[in-house]
Simulated assay, not measured.
Amino acid sequence: MAIDLKSNPVVAALPGGGWIAEFKQDDGSVETYPLVAWLVLADGEMIPMDASASGDAQDPREVANFQRMYHPDATGTGCRPRAACDASGGSAPVRGDT
């Protein structure tokens, strides 16, 4: 996602807060990486950011093998326990949920 700094600038950055991005590898294994920050745009949208091994920050949803983001301690009122954001932007259960 390209951020248009003229019409919708970043107004704040918040810590990743324990959120995790999950990626499925070609061999079927899953790798997880912590989100390092959330960018807050002027319109209120929040963009998750993780960092590559080389130190480049990126929105994990833009990576081809992105599966989902989740917080390992998340529970909510009116939603399924430990809900996660999947690649389509919807809710998906975290492994182990019943």
Score class of each variant (00 low, 15 high):
Val30Arg: 15
Arg61Asp: 01
Ala51Gly: 01
Ala42Pro: 02
Gln25Leu: 05
Met46Tyr: 12
Asp59Thr: 07
Leu35Trp: 12
Glu31Trp: 15
Gly76Ser: 10
Gln58Ile: 10
Ala64Leu: 04
Asp43Glu: 00
His71Cys: 05
Gly76Tyr: 15
Lys24Ala: 09
Met49Asp: 00
His71Phe: 12
Phe66Asp: 00
Gly44Phe: 07
Thr32Met: 05
Met69Pro: 01
Gly28Ala: 14
Met46Thr: 06
Ala51Tyr: 15
Thr32Ala: 11
Gly44Pro: 02
Glu62Ala: 07
Val36Leu: 12
Gln58Met: 14
Asp26Met: 06
Met49Phe: 08
Ala74Asp: 12
Val40Ser: 01
Arg61Asn: 00
Asp26Ile: 04
Ser52Gly: 02
Val63Leu: 06
Ala74Gln: 14
Met46Phe: 08
Gln58Arg: 14
Gly55Gln: 14
Glu31Phe: 15
Ala42Gln: 10
Pro48His: 00
Thr32Glu: 10
Gln67Ser: 14
Tyr70Thr: 04
Trp38Glu: 03
Ala64Met: 05
Asp56Ser: 11
Leu41Tyr: 11
Ser29Asn: 12
Ala42His: 08
Met69Arg: 02
Thr32Arg: 10
His71Gly: 09
Gly55Asn: 06
Gly28Ser: 08
Lys24Glu: 11
Val36Ala: 06
Asp73Val: 04
Glu45Asp: 01
His71Val: 06
Ser54Trp: 10
Phe23Ala: 00
Ser29Pro: 06
Asn65Trp: 03
Tyr70Ser: 03
Met46Gln: 06
Thr75Tyr: 07
Asp56Pro: 01
Val30His: 12
Phe66Trp: 09
Asp59Arg: 10
Tyr33Met: 13
Phe23Tyr: 08
Asp50Pro: 00
Glu31Ile: 15
Pro60Trp: 15
Asp27Pro: 11
Asp59Phe: 11
Gln67Cys: 04
Gln25Phe: 04
Gln58Asp: 07
Ala57Gly: 05
Gln67Tyr: 05
Leu35Gly: 06
Asp50Cys: 06
Ala74Ser: 10
Pro34Cys: 11
Phe23Ser: 02
Gln25Glu: 13
Ile47Asn: 02
Asp26Cys: 03
Asp27Lys: 09
Ala42Val: 05
Thr77Arg: 13
Leu35Cys: 07
Gln58Gly: 06
Ser54Glu: 09
Glu31Met: 15
Val63Trp: 05
Arg61Ser: 01
